[in-house]
């Protein structure tokens, strides 16, 4: 049974159809890349899968639980690094994790142990008592990531996890994701950094104007003699830079 399934998932904002009739099946323990240009509907899809947006049509099942009928059950199973990080102002990094632990019903000792280990791994331990609104973008992102990981979710949704992250931490995060996938956690990543996606994911989909235009495994892409970047531009198209002749 797939860990993530979507059936005809559709979302429109007025006349703009952000996501149209999305059908996906992602099996357990897979790192799945969800690619597309800005405004293609990637974040809208993640928002629907994580409960931030109600789909207009269709349904999605996470670990067999429907996002429409069992939203709390789904939220218990998933960890999310959302696009805007969704952090509380005037609350420290450490307090965010303590709060998360209580909400996911972890014991205080277990929460503190996991929080300490995660922050240490993400190189965030020395700055754990900083308010998130006074932390750097990278620190905020790592805090949101630690919150997503704290309760050891079955499925991880990561929206642009490597943006604003230093190379050392990015490497640590990649190692961690590979470890988790090896243990059966399904990871759903959206990213613009194609090189990273190419090295990290097993399969991917390219979304253009709310519709999936390509779904395949990285192995299939490489076998066809293309890079992921070439395939991406084939579907997305490329602008002519010479029009900006006045620049410089």
């Amino acid at each position: 049974m797939p860990e993530i399934e979507t059936h005809g998932l559709t979302k429109a904002f007025g006349k703009l159809v952000a996501v149209s009739d999305l059908n996906l099946e992602i099996s357990k323990g897979t790192i799945f890349g969800f690619l597309g240009p800005n405004g293609s509907g990637k974040s809208t899809t993640v928002k629907m899968l994580t409960g931030l947006l109600q789909p207009d049509r269709g349904n999605a099942l996470i670990g067999g639980a429907s996002i429409l009928t069992s939203p709390i059950e789904v939220k218990k199973r998933i960890g999310v690094l959302p696009e805007d990080l969704a952090l509380f102002d005037s609350v420290t990094i450490w307090e965010h994790l303590i709060m998360s632990g209580a909400i996911y019903e972890l014991s205080r000792d277990e929460t503190e142990k996991r929080a300490h280990q995660l922050l240490d791994y993400l190189d965030l331990l020395p700055s754990r008592h900083t308010y998130v609104d006074q932390a750097s973008t990278g620190m905020r992102k790592k805090c949101a990531l630690a919150m997503a990981l704290l309760h050891n979710p079955q499925v991880l949704f990561l929206d642009e996890p490597f943006e604003g992250i230093d190379p050392v931490s990015a490497r640590h995060i990649k190692d961690l994701l590979l470890l988790m996938a090896g243990k059966g956690v399904t990871v759903f990543i959206t990213s613009h950094i194609l090189e990273v996606i190419e090295r990290l994911v097993q399969s991917f989909a390219i979304l253009v104007a709310g519709e999936i235009v390509c779904t395949q495994t990285v192995a299939e892409t490489l076998q066809s003699g293309h890079t992921l970047e070439e395939l991406f531009f084939k579907y997305v198209g490329k602008r002519n830079v010479e029009a900006l002749e006045w620049v410089g």
């Binding site: 420290t92 303590i98 008592h129 308010y131």
Partner: peptide, 22 residues
Amino acid sequence: GPQRKATAFSLATGKTGSLAMK
């Protein structure tokens, strides 16, 4: 901001308690 090491969040229990502390 202050380096807030001692935190009231430690006193809170349960879902509502920890959110109420914030």
